[in-house]
C-alpha cells in the first residue's frame, strides 16, 4: 500500500467527510473504522496478522465506496470491483480525500511498526499434508540412494488418497511422481492414481478459471452498455425534478425510483 501522497489538490464534489463519519456512531462505516482503530492500537500477531489487517482495510474501503455519490449501476460496479481488488489507491482516486490517505498511512505505519508482513501463501490443510509427505519422500530419496520400492509405499499411498485442493497440491503430487519414478523406475500401478488425480484436479481448476473469466467478461460487457435511464438519478436530475414538481428532494427521489422501477420492469407478453 502506498499512501501519504498528495491527491493533486483535487477536491471531490461530495467527498466523504471523515470527521462526520467518525462522529456518527451508528453506521457500519464507523464500526469498521473503530474496529480498524482497535487493530492499530493493538496490532495483531501471528501468521494471520496481515490478513486481518488487510481484511479490515478492504471492509473499510468498501463501506467508504458505498457512501460515494454513485449515480449509475456501472459506477457502482466499478467501485465494487475496485473494493474487491483492494485497490486502495484507486479508491482514493475516486474521491476519498486526504483524510483517508492519512488514516491509511497511520494504519500502514502501525503495521510496519508491529512488524506485520504478508503471510506465507495459504494452502489448504490437505495440501499442507501433501507438501509434508512430499518433503518426507524427498528426504528418503536423498538419504538413501537406491531406496527400495517398498520404502516409498506408505507415503505414496497416503498421497494417492489425499485429493489435491489447489495448484500447490497438484504440483506436489507431480513432484512426488517424479521422485518416485527416479527412485523406482517402475511401479506404474501406484503412480498412475497420483497422475490421474493431478490431471483431474488441473482440469477442474482450469474449468473454474475459465468460468470465472467468462462471467467477468459477460459482466464487463453488460456494464459497458449505455443505459437510457440510470437506476440512480444524479443530484441535478433530482433537483430539477423537485423544482418542476414543487416537491421535496426526498419526495422527488422516491418518485424517480418508482418511475424507474416501472419503466425498467420487463413487460413480458406485451406486443404479441
Amino acid at each position: 500500500m502506498r499512501s501519504g501522497q498528495q491527491n493533486g489538490g483535487r477536491v471531490p464534489d461530495a467527498a466523504l467527510d471523515l470527521n462526520t463519519a467518525f462522529d456518527r456512531r451508528d453506521t457500519l462505516f464507523t464500526r469498521a473504522a473503530e474496529h480498524m482503530s482497535d487493530i492499530v492500537a493493538n496490532p495483531p500477531g501471528g501468521p494471520h496478522a496481515f490478513d486481518l489487517l488487510n481484511g479490515g482495510l478492504r471492509e473499510l474501503s468498501s463501506l467508504m465506496i458505498r457512501q460515494l455519490p454513485l449515480t449509475t449501476a456501472r459506477e457502482a460496479r466499478l467501485a465494487h470491483a475496485l473494493c474487491q481488488e483492494g485497490i486502495v489507491e484507486d479508491s482514493k482516486a475516486l474521491a476519498l480525500g486526504e483524510g483517508v490517505a492519512l488514516f491509511l498511512d497511520r494504519l500502514q505505519a502501525a503495521a510496519d511498526h508491529a512488524g506485520i508482513g504478508p503471510a506465507a501463501p495459504p494452502g489448504s490443510d490437505r495440501d499442507h499434508e501433501l507438501i509434508r509427505l512430499e518433503q518426507h519422500l524427498q528426504t528418503m530419496a536423498q538419504a538413501r540412494h537406491g531406496a527400495q520400492d517398498a520404502d516409498l509405499h506408505p507415503a505414496l499411498e497416503i498421497m494417492a488418497t489425499t485429493p489435491a485442493q489447489g495448484l500447490e497440491g497438484v504440483l506436489t503430487k507431480l513432484r512426488a511422481c517424479r521422485t518416485a519414478m527416479a527412485v523406482q523406475g517402475n511401479g506404474a500401478e501406484r503412480l498412475a492414481p497420483l497422475l490421474d488425480d493431478a490431471v483431474s484436479a488441473l482440469e477442474r481448476m482450469a474449468l473454474r478459471e475459465a468460468i470465472t473469466r467468462f462471467d467477468r467478461t459477460a459482466d464487463a460487457f453488460e456494464a459497458a452498455m449505455p443505459k437510457v435511464l440510470p437506476t440512480k438519478p444524479t443530484d441535478r436530475m433530482l433537483a430539477a425534478g423537485a423544482k418542476a414538481g414543487s416537491v421535496a428532494l426526498d419526495a422527488a427521489r422516491r418518485i424517480y425510483q418508482a418511475m424507474a422501477s416501472e419503466f425498467l420492469s420487463p413487460r413480458k407478453g406485451v406486443g404479441e
Partner: peptide, 30 residues
C-alpha cells in the same frame, strides 16, 4: 448482456434496457 446501436435503433432504447439480463426467446418480438 449487451445490445449495440444498430439493434437499439430498430427496437428502441427502452426495449434494450428492459431486455438486458433476459432470455432472448422471451423478447416481445417473438
Amino acid at each position: 448482456r449487451y445490445i449495440g446501436e444498430p439493434t437499439r435503433r430498430v427496437f428502441g432504447d427502452r426495449w434494450a434496457d428492459q431486455n438486458i439480463g433476459r432470455p432472448h426467446l422471451e423478447d416481445v418480438h417473438s
